[in-house]
Amino acid sequence: MIKYLTLTTFIAFFFLITTGHANEKAILLRGGATAAFGGVKSFDPGNDYFWGGGFNVNAGFRFSNLTFRGYNFSPWEINASGNSYWGRTVHHIKSELEHVSVEGGAAIRTFVIAVCLKYHFETLYKKVWQPYLGLGPSWSQHTLKMKNYEVRRGTFTNNNRIAYLTEGATLIFGIEENLPYREMHPVYMEFAYTLTAVKKISLLDASNHKEIESIEYANIDKHIYSHIIMFNIGMTIF
């Protein structure tokens, strides 16, 4: 799905530029900080939730002044967001592949991409804050650096990492300043909930930091879920 979404996106970008619709009012770029609470419900129940902090960026296309069959699409926005955060150590998480099984504490680094359709409500809170709601598919990758671990099967060293690749959906609810000019850098605050299912788990060799290789991977057919609640705060850059 991500392949077709990416192809459609870039074809749309090309037509936006060549047909002159890429005006500054339609395209938005936002960025800010993220506080996250989440975790991977791993192979066995355990204390595998963590707090984390990082940054978020998102790019949006607002359907300004677009009317079709009498309906004004101005409140709608297509948005692609990326969140990167680094979590504090999870106390216990277990990971299993065909030849390796390891459990223990882990520091988690996560990257989430979500493509959402957002709707900006007409109601203004205190004449400035405009609420919005968004929903769309998302993909995330959690990279675990194991600490105080125990190897149950196979070989696992300090240079190895475990990576979980997940697919699912993101729901966003937030408020944004409704200001007349983009140059005033309107501020936004939002809560995003991402629920994804683990599709693939990989064993990585990070002995060469410039080039991290995948040694082994396994496609997951069990129900292993990743839950993330993120609080994003930032402003419109342009």
């Binding site: 870039f10 970008f13 090309f14 890429a22 500054e24 339609a26 395209i27 770029l29």
Partner: peptide
């Protein structure tokens, strides 16, 4: 190019 166009063209170049 304006900022929006520059962003879109950067996306296309990267792709």
């Amino acid at each position: 190019y304006n900022k929006g166009q520059a962003f879109l063209l950067t996306s296309l170049s990267s792709a």
